[in-house]
Design a binder for these strands. Structure first.
Lengths: 346, 346
DNA sequence: CATGTTTCGTAGAACGTTCTCCATTGTTAG
DNA sequence: CTAACAATGGAGAACGTTCTACGAAACATG
């Protein structure tokens, strides 16, 4: 179709011919199945190498596995996706599995379309990162293809889940700030328009974890949550509201680093020094957080571990595990320059 | 294998039975092929809807197309990949094509493995973003499957290319700085270890564009290129070297925004005010560049347009275009707070 | 009315695997 | 020596599409 007509692919039949055996025998060698003598295995292997044989995934899919795992991305811009992906692929090195990513967009409809597309392509299993569909929809998908869900707290019998322990993460921040002497610690959370994820969403759990931790430290009075969005603009807007309070908070815990950046901008514009007049903490420990001019205190969720765990669970599912697993990964706090003791008397 | 046994997929035969026609007829309707009466089309369509039929991609792959396009990513962390992806998927909305992303890593070997995996999965075409393999390897791939290469300047008969016009981008920066009155404008570039891409790489073209533009402005004497790497650390290191020169540059043009961030850190540590003592410009216009505390002057390459163009060219190739195309997308300069007139007398 | 020409619809052979039987050959037990 | 069994290899039927051939019917032309 292009320049020269494409050379025909080397098939299992070519290998069989070369090795002087049947196609069934080649298939057995390929799959490591029972009933193959060492001599035959060697012959076939040699023939495969000589011809540069590569199994045709689509043909395999007609009967058996495709050795393809899909990862549905809900937001390609989310800065810790690369970590999760690395964790997933890292775990799969040395296996025959290949990972393909599918941009699913942020709407339930487009995510469902992407998932369907993966199922149509006979993927052996699918990892869904922060999907926004309902649990019922997820369960329905799981009857067709094994799935692992990342970033949704509710567990389900039909599939496995891997989550960052957002309650712990929120507590780490509150404890750190309380230890520094802060009393009025406010929180900025993300308001979902789509209701599908609801109380299972990371932001909801972070907010709840914040409330719990505040109460545990006897700071119930200081609880103050404003719901905007996890964007720079949302953080800015939220901080403006909080800084206009009669009793201004001395610390703001943004549920995401991007929002924390907006908080920093608001503080800058209000001529408040950070951390002198206002301490700021974020969540996710994105790359920029560690850069000098920002130096943001943040909660680090280990994307590598999350990805690797998801990959392990998915392969286990594919190989036949029935029982459902919920794996919770503990985050750590990275203290940097944006948090410090509150100024003056309380 | 999991809980209930998966329900058998609805096939073309089920649809044919329901509609009271042959499977061949259903296939024709599906493909929009010639020789179908309106009545029959309606019957078949109805049956498909009632049964919730979805074509099985693997089965299609055995004979025809898979309607799957692959995008090989060389670096998942690169901040303008999301733009390119959006451009690609945006262009394909409404068509039957699905896009799947493959993390190829930064080594020729792993990228080749990913590309092979995509070919094994019978993808109809592949977009390669900044691949590091040799042109010969790319040409070899192109004989098997149509490909479009993004971010490599060399053109080839076997495949199409889409590039940002890095010569123009470099000139925009140099002209802007020269207009402000700068004479000693230094450049930080990226040193490739793998030689596969060589002079075709964006960094090489940007550096060459910088040299050309400097000469064009009569500033040949001020040409000063230091090769580190396109990372925060690389930018920092490069800036340290440049700032130690006897005649210190008054402006630094970093070949990438991440490196520019490192330059800003070095300036900060050296107690130089930006842009008072040192002007800094980057390339790529990544998200953080626009944030207030950074406010980096940068060159914006329109990832959307690049992605959309690549998708268009790929589909054209698949549909049969033979002639090779090289499409160059012009970047624009976004002037922000890190560039200004040089201080004092020259 | 005989003869071409469209138009519509179907049969059935691929495509490259997997995997269930089945046949053959040794080997062991009685 | 025979029966039972293990080990090895092969035949051939799927799997769900696409698409080439071909037949039948409907229509147009002389």
């Amino acid at each position: 179709m292009t320049t020269g007509s494409a050379p025909r692919r080397v098939t299992i039949a070519d290998v069989a011919g070369r090795a002087g055996v049947s196609t069934a025998a080649v298939s057995k060698v390929l799959r490591g199945a029972y009933g193959v003598s060492p001599g035959m295995r060697a012959k076939v292997r040699e023939a495969m190498d000589e011809l540069g044989y590569r199994p045709h995934a689509a043909a395999r899919a007609m009967r058996g596995r495709t050795y393809t795992l899909g990862v549905m991305l809900s937001d390609t811009r989310n800065p810790f996706f690369p970590d999760i992906i690395e964790g997933v692929t890292g775990r799969l090195v040395g296996t025959e599995y290949q990972v393909l990513l599918g941009p699913g967009g942020d709407e339930p409809r487009s995510q469902a379309r992407m998932t369907d597309a993966m199922i149509d392509r006979s993927m052996d299993g699918i990892i869904l990162i922060s999907p926004v569909m309902s649990s019922a929809e997820l369960a329905a998908i799981a009857t067709t293809t094994p799935i692992v869900v990342i970033g949704r707290h509710g567990s389900a019998a039909e599939y496995d889940s891997v989550v960052d322990d957002d309650v712990v993460g929120a507590r780490l921040v509150v404890d750190h700030l309380a230890d520094l002497g802060h009393r009025r610690i406010a929180h900025i959370t993300h308001l979902d328009r789509g209701r599908a994820s609801g109380a299972d969403s990371p932001q909801a759990v972070r907010a709840e974890g914040y409330r719990q931790a505040m109460r545990a430290r006897g700071l119930a009075e200081g609880i103050d949550v404003v719901a905007t969005s996890f964007t720079e603009e949302g953080g800015y807007e939220g901080a403006r509201q909080l800084l206009a309070r009669p009793a201004r908070p001395t610390a703001i815990f943004a549920g995401a680093d991007v929002a924390a950046l907006g908080v920093l901008r608001a503080a800058y514009e209000a001529d408040l020094s950070v951390p002198g007049d206002l301490s700021v903490a974020g969540y996710d420990n994105i790359g920029i957080a560690s850069l000098k001019p920002i130096s943001l205190t943040s909660v680090d969720q280990d994307g590598h571990v999350i990805g690797a765990t998801a990959a392990r669970l998915l392969v286990e599912r594919i190989e036949g595990r029935g029982r459902s697993v919920l794996s919770s990964v503990s985050p750590t706090l990275v203290v940097r320059g944006t948090t410090g003791p509150p100024a003056g008397r309380e």
